[in-house]
Design a protein around this nucleic acid. Structure first.
Lengths: 139, 139
DNA sequence: TTAAAAATTGCAATGGCTGTGCATCGGGTT
DNA sequence: AACCCGATGCACAGCCATTGCAATTTTTAA
């Protein structure tokens, strides 16, 4: 049963599986692209914005999702992949933002290259967003 | 005379040199780090936020400054350097954001490496922000 | 030099977004 | 069953970019 799988996914991360959270997790699972809080709100018209906000916050704290700042002003959220180390170390993978459909994709296979900074700077994390046109919008 | 230099800088970029603009340009010139609209507003308490906003927008359109999204929610602005091609092609250089003093620096010598994207993605520009601690705050 | 036109500026206000305080609800525990 | 604690929903505050409009300043033209 699919609901069971979602439940387990939450329990694995030490998140109490409420109805709301199962729905949000399901929505995130069905998405290829990262989604913003507003996107979620549109998908769940019946629910409160703040609840969704806090749900995402909880997911993030527990390491179930990571947030992406793609420069649109609104953070986007995506499920962490198997090997996602976004909460352990720096978030290393590249994100792609399509200027046509405004969707943002994780490119987990593409890591951010090391940057040799000038001596006085100590780098801790890095965020690389490539903008352009995605496959769906290119045709 | 210094004012003359600032004036020329504006005229070069086809910007009409008003008092406001000269002051903003002067403020930008004196800064090593990139500054936000709010920073500017604090420096010019007598002037209106919207005017400063539009001044920066004009500067940006004319290629005098470029804006940086360092993930703090508020865009920051920095003067374009000699070889800055931010409006011609993609903005290639790296920015550094200090989590202690919240300042953002341009690292014009550090270019964003080319990323080989999966076939369906067409990259047009890229934004790389490294976060950490700057020299002033490291001590 | 003066009048008209255009650009700039300042004020008021809007809309989008994150985030907080507080009361309520519901599920789990004793 | 009574209790407790976390989750939820509502109201609201705060920050930011952005627009409309009127007043002012600067440029252009006569």
């Amino acid at each position: 049963m699919v609901i069971k799988e979602l439940e387990n996914k939450l329990k694995e991360k030490d998140i109490r599986p409420t109805a709301m959270r199962l729905l949000v997790l399901e929505a995130l699972s069905g998405q290829e692209a990262a989604i913003s809080l507003s996107d979620l709100e549109k998908a769940f018209e019946k629910s409160d914005r703040v609840t969704l906000f806090r749900t995402l916050k909880t997911f993030q704290e527990k390491g179930l999702v990571h947030s992406i700042d793609d420069g649109t002003g609104a953070p986007k959220y995506a499920l962490c992949e198997e090997g996602c180390e976004c909460n352990i170390e720096r978030d290393l993978h590249v994100h792609f933002h399509c200027r046509v459909c405004s969707e943002t994709f994780c490119l987990p296979k593409y890591k951010i290259p090391e940057i040799d900074l000038p001596g006085m700077f100590i780098g801790e994390e890095a965020n690389l967003v490539v903008k352009g046109v995605c496959g769906k919008c290119a045709d």
